[in-house]
C-alpha cells in the first residue's frame, strides 16, 4: 500500500475514530488496556451474541497510533467469532513483529505494516489488540 494512503487512513481513524464513546450497559464486558511505558490508556467495551462479537466501543486517552489502531481494529472485528478475532490478533502481532502473517484477515490494519521501523510505536499500535485478547481469553475461561 502506498505510504501516503496508509497515512491518510491512519489520520482519518485518528481524527474521526469509529465507536469511540462511553458505554453504560451491563451487557458489555469492559477491559482496560494501558501502556506502562507511556500514557496510552483505553477502556474497551465488548458485547457478544453467543460466540460472535456483536459490538465493540472504546474510550480513553492515547496517541494517534493507538487511537487509530483501535478504531481500525473495531471496524474489523465486529461480526467476527471469538476464534476469528483471536486469529486476527495473532496475525496483527506477527505483522508488527516482522513475522509471517496473513494480510487478508487484517483489513485496514495493514496500514501498520511498517510500524516495526519505530520500535517505540509498536506497543501503541498493539495496545487495543492486547486488551481485546485479554478480554476474549477471559471469556473463554468463563471468568467474565
Amino acid at each position: 500500500m502506498d505510504p501516503e494512503i496508509k497515512r491518510e487512513i491512519i489520520m482519518e481513524h485518528y481524527q474521526n475514530p469509529l465507536h469511540r464513546h462511553h458505554v453504560d450497559d451491563k451487557s458489555y464486558d469492559m477491559v482496560n488496556t494501558a501502556n506502562s511505558s507511556c500514557i496510552d490508556n483505553l477502556n474497551i467495551y465488548i458485547k457478544y451474541d453467543g460466540d460472535v462479537i456483536k459490538d465493540i466501543a472504546f474510550e480513553g486517552e492515547a496517541c494517534a497510533i493507538s487511537i487509530s489502531s483501535t478504531s481500525i481494529m473495531i471496524e474489523n472485528l465486529i461480526g467476527k467469532t471469538r476464534e476469528e478475532a483471536l486469529n486476527i490478533i495473532d496475525n496483527f502481532e506477527n505483522m508488527i513483529n516482522e513475522k509471517e502473517y496473513s494480510e487478508d484477515v487484517l483489513g485496514n490494519a495493514v496500514v501498520y505494516s511498517d510500524i516495526y521501523k519505530q520500535n517505540s510505536r509498536k506497543s501503541c499500535a498493539f495496545l487495543p489488540y492486547r486488551g481485546l485478547r485479554e478480554a476474549l481469553t477471559k471469556k473463554d475461561n468463563g471468568k467474565s
Partner: peptide, 21 residues
C-alpha cells in the same frame, strides 16, 4: 495534539523531550 505524538515527531529530528504525566 496528544503530547506523545509531538514527542515522537521531535524524536524524528533527534530532539529528546519527555511526554506524559
Amino acid at each position: 495534539i496528544f503530547s506523545q505524538d509531538v514527542a515522537f515527531y521531535l524524536n524524528k529530528y533527534k530532539v529528546c523531550v519527555r511526554a506524559g504525566n
